[in-house]
């Protein structure tokens, strides 16, 4: 589904990704771990198309209509319409725009891109009600402004709800576990597990093994200085947890 080949990217003239390779297939869960500043969050932003980052080398091949296509030059909204979703580490507040309106506008713009008729408000409300079972949120959630005045946990839950509603093929979860207490972590993880299927792929970006107790990865990659330096199975996370990145990278 996604094949990143020798990807190089920079922000503000500084090279952050220095020849990164990664292959993700449908139905897989990948975890990307690494110390602070290794380029984990940058990788997620580059895949989603953040305008501050520019790709200076390599390719990001993503399947569009069953054909691998380099998405490096696509606008972020075009990538989103093709099923790429980034759950933000720091979700942005959009005051005055209700969650309902936001979700419906996003959903319909993706639907329209796929050539389907947009849903009416009533149809969307029915669809949304089903998705709301995946993750529990306050009853007044839908009428409130997007992320405005939300607690850290609520913001992260909102990201997972958006993921459930938009049903992406490739989801990148950028430190979704950060700042969550154990209860919220469980809720968020259960949500992700319900969304997970053999047709979609999930990339978890995290510092800690903790998240991986709840969402079981198939592969673990260690990112260091802009490159993936080691790939392995779930056991790799335990090893990292035990020895730390320093011990591991020596």
């Amino acid at each position: 589904m996604l094949e990143i080949k020798d990807l190089k990217a920079e922000v503000d003239g500084k090279e952050i990704l220095k020849g990164l390779n990664l292959k993700v297939n449908a139905g897989e869960v990948h975890a990307i771990m690494g110390p602070n500043g290794s380029g984990k969050s940058s990788l997620s932003k580059v895949i989603a198309g953040h305008p501050s980052y520019s790709v200076t080398g390599g390719q990001m091949l993503y399947d569009i209509n069953f054909e691998p296509k380099d998405i490096s030059e696509m606008d972020p909204d075009e990538r989103a319409k093709e099923g790429i979703f980034l759950a933000f580490q720091y979700p942005v507040e959009v005051p005055g725009v209700s969650n309902f309106n936001f979700l419906m506008t996003s959903f319909n713009s993706i639907l329209e891109h796929q050539g389907s008729e947009p849903l009416t408000e009533e149809e969307f409300r029915n669809y949304l009600n089903k998705k709301m079972n995946i993750i529990s949120l306050r009853p007044d959630f839908l009428e409130r402004g997007v992320n405005s005045g939300f607690s850290g946990g609520e913001k992260k839950k909102n990201e997972i709800l958006q993921m459930a509603v938009l049903a992406p093929r490739l989801s990148i979860l950028d430190e979704t576990d950060s700042g969550l207490d154990i209860d919220a972590l469980k809720v968020v993880s259960e949500g992700v597990n319900k969304i997970k299927s053999k047709n979609n792929a999930i990339v978890l970006i995290t510092h800690y093994q903790r998240l991986l107790d709840y969402i079981k990865p198939d592969f673990i990659h260690v990112l260091y200085q802009g490159r993936i330096v080691k790939t392995g199975g779930p056991e790799l996370a335990l090893e990292l947890e035990k020895n730390g990145y320093d011990g591991f990278l020596q």
Binding site: A48, G49, H50, P51, D75, P76, D77, R79, A80, K81, F85, L86, F88, P91, V92, V94, F102, T105, S106, F107, S109, I110, H113, Q162, L166
Partner: peptide, 8 residues
């Protein structure tokens, strides 16, 4: 960017 990454 946040809104764009949601397809707008």
């Amino acid at each position: 960017f946040y809104l764009q990454s949601r397809g707008l």
